[in-house]
Design a protein around this nucleic acid. Structure first.
Lengths: 255, 255
DNA sequence: ACCTGAACACCGTTCAAGT
DNA sequence: ACCTGAACACCGTTCAAGT
């Protein structure tokens, strides 16, 4: 830091201060975490990396590709994909062995990893959605789908139901994380002082102030909104989807 | 159009060519539909409205507020909220009367309205998510929640389960519409020539080209991806969630 | 009260020029 | 092959000035 070392192109192939696509993407993730998508600009990137704009464009085509790479990096970290053995029913995410007895736990593990990734990286959910929509060749869609699907398979859902079940899970998880994580983070960005309970209290109060004639249902559950726990709620909703999948595919007499 | 009429401030209070917040929001929706969020700029707005930038800022605080207003306008149109009668169980969206026999149909009607709105306005889902996350005082959250919740109530779910059930439905619907609608639209924006079957075929081919060791599940359902119908898939997933809600709250002997 | 339009600070991206 | 940094076109927003 104090004295810039002169370029010595020999030695190991990897130098920590050399510019590389990997280092750019890592820095982009840091900036996104701290300042959101709006805060990620090529100017702050050139400052943090101590280069010119052109240097970044040498490694990355444009901002869209940079956002895609950042998203893929974070999702890949959250959902490492071990080689698959279709015959095995155990989930590597639950260390307590095969989930034959409680086949839903594998889905819960995957979902929670995504939930926590979205909590740590508030920009993630929106980027995943953008990725799935606009990038046919992207790897984040298949990665999430595969991670969920393996457990759907382990649940004993027949093949014809795989796509529907895995899609429904993915849709629920994406919708839930998009709202939940962005929720906390947005409040935080506006005013770092406010915490989650305060945000919920404000929202609940707003619900209670709604027109009774038009919003009787919403007013009734205002207290449930105030007191709910995000993660617990996420799990409960996930269980509803899983219960629906199980109900749609009752176990046959194969066992 | 040909000759600009001179200002005559008398007559009716409403003149079709006068600038107003309503007219600005309407124009914003048109621009968003045609060019997406990136295409909505104050420059194209000033051109379409034949004014200066300052005139727009007189009626609207900033771009965020304009996006919020556009979102609220579209959602309000998709989900008009009649005064609520908590005792009634019929859904105004299904003209064939009360849904006591098939209590899910009300949810389906609401969900389909949102699905279609998201199809017609590809920018909508992302904006709804942003709205729910960042705008505590906004009306779109309560509106969607109330529309869904009334039918949850009609399904016979006990009060303690209302918040969880309505939330799960909202999360699924938002996740599904976000992916589905943006999907078609993004492909359309890139190349207006490609249609939905072509996009699906490309995606399915990409899935089939994945590494067999890591993506066996995803590869297996590639054909289901290719042949699925968006709307039918959306309904099937919704039915899974509804089945889960029903399973979690089996009807008691109250009837 | 409502509108005009020039001006400001900032953004993503390009590109001739360097090493 | 990789990097520099000035330049370009464009963006959201402001504001003194008009009516």
């Amino acid at each position: 830091m104090t004295s810039p070392t002169p370029r010595s192109p020999r030695r190991t192939a990897r130098r920590s201060d050399a510019l590389s696509r990997e280092r750019i993407v890592e820095t982009a993730v840091e900036v996104l975490d701290a300042a959101g998508e709006g805060g990620l600009t090529f100017r702050v990137l050139t400052e943090r990396l101590a280069t010119g704009a052109g240097a970044i464009y040498w490694h990355v085509a444009n901002k869209d590709e940079l956002l895609a790479a950042a998203t893929e990096a974070v999702v890949a970290r959250a959902l490492p994909l071990a080689p698959d053995d279709p015959a095995a029913t155990d989930s590597p995410a639950t260390p307590d062995g095969p989930d034959a007895d409680r086949p839903w736990e594998g889905v819960h593990a995957v979902a929670l990893r995504l939930f926590e990734a979205a909590e740590a990286h508030p920009w993630l959910s929106a980027q995943i959605a953008a990725q799935l929509a606009g990038r046919p060749g992207g790897t984040v869609g298949p990665r999430i789908f595969e991670a969920l699907g393996r457990h759907v398979r382990a649940m004993g859902v027949p093949v014809e139901g795989w796509f529907t079940a895995a899609s429904a899970l993915m849709h629920y998880i994406l919708g839930a994380t998009a709202l939940n994580a962005a929720n906390t983070a947005a409040a935080h960005a506006l005013d770092p002082g406010v915490d989650r309970p305060r945000v919920l209290a404000d929202a609940a109060n707003a619900w209670q102030g709604l027109d009774p004639a038009a919003y009787s249902f919403t007013r009734t559950v205002a207290d449930q909104l105030r007191e709910h726990d995000d993660r617990e709620q996420f799990r409960s909703g996930l269980d509803l989807v899983l219960a629906g999948i199980a109900a749609a595919h009752p176990p046959t007499a194969t066992a």
